[in-house]
């Protein structure tokens, strides 16, 4: 189960962004997509979230073809955290998180939706922000609100697009601990991360994307090999062993 992508290609207009992607993200694991800016990671994530139309190839999420799911069915399976976010109106944090319940609500959310919302807010640890206007929060706080919103969706799979980019170190660590917790509770998480060190410390699996294709590793190659990373990021990188994996440092 989990997520499996087969023979997926995608282009914006005439620009090919992804070529024949084959990928498996195991259920209950934390999988990270690594690669340079513009390598196609975010596009791949959006395709898996169903936010871009999948025309060539197959995407199966928890055993279901994504194309056969309605928007609201999909939202109950997949939670997606976008990279950028702005709001035109000063909604409170609670109101923003509550919108995660959209696929369960017809007209107005009820008590159960409120309960789940509060639970999500508590889980992310932002209950002190509950009544604050979303527009007045810092970038990091907004990120936490948005992950609470994803949790309020009660998805089985969570897709995160650079979730750490606005967070300070302590919030990054709290956020990653939260992901661990979610994994423990059986969720599947796929994230795009900038920092390979964090990825190697926290994630279970790694997908390396270069120029729109998955870099397949042969038997004796590891994602934290200096040669692989140097090739992936296009800059000279060195590594030093650390807890069975490695730390990456500029060469």
């Amino acid at each position: 189960m989990g997520i499996s992508v087969k023979d997926l290609s995608f282009s914006y207009g005439t620009t090919m962004v992804l070529h024949n992607i084959e990928l498996n993200a195991a259920e209950g694991k934390f999988t990270v997509l690594l690669g340079k800016n513009g390598s196609g990671k975010s596009t791949l994530l959006k395709l898996m979230a169903g936010l871009l139309p999948c025309k060539t190839g197959d995407i199966n999420i928890m055993g279901k073809d994504i194309r056969h799911l309605s928007i609201s069915e999909r939202a109950k399976v997949i939670g997606y955290l976008p990279q950028f976010h702005t709001a035109a109106f000063p909604f409170t944090v609670e109101e923003v998180v509550l919108t995660g319940r959209a696929s369960y609500v017809f007209a107005v959310p009820g008590k159960k939706d409120m309960d789940i919302t509060n639970e999500a807010i508590n889980k992310v640890g932002i209950s002190h922000l509950r009544q604050r206007p979303y527009t007045e929060l810092s970038g990091g706080e907004r990120q936490l609100v948005m992950i609470a919103r994803v949790l309020a969706q009660e998805p089985q799979v969570i897709l995160l697009d650079e979730p750490l980019s606005h967070l300070d170190l302590s919030n990054q660590i709290r956020f990653l601990a939260l992901i661990k917790e979610l994994i423990m509770s059986g969720l599947t998480v796929v994230a795009v991360l900038h920092d390979p060190n964090i990825a190697f410390m926290y994630a279970d699996d790694f997908m390396l994307i270069k120029d729109g294709t998955i870099r397949i590793l042969s038997g004796d190659e590891r994602p934290w090999d200096a040669s692989i990373l140097t090739d992936l990021y296009g800059v000279h990188l060195e590594t030093m062993p650390f807890r069975e994996r490695a730390l990456v440092i500029p060469g």
Partner: peptide, 23 residues
């Protein structure tokens, strides 16, 4: 009036709306 809450969802952006399950 009936769809008043859905406007909260819409107000947060197209992609966000789609992500939480509304077209």
């Amino acid at each position: 009036f009936i769809i008043r809450w859905r406007m909260n969802v819409i107000a947060l952006g197209d992609e966000e709306t789609r992500a939480v399950g509304l077209n």
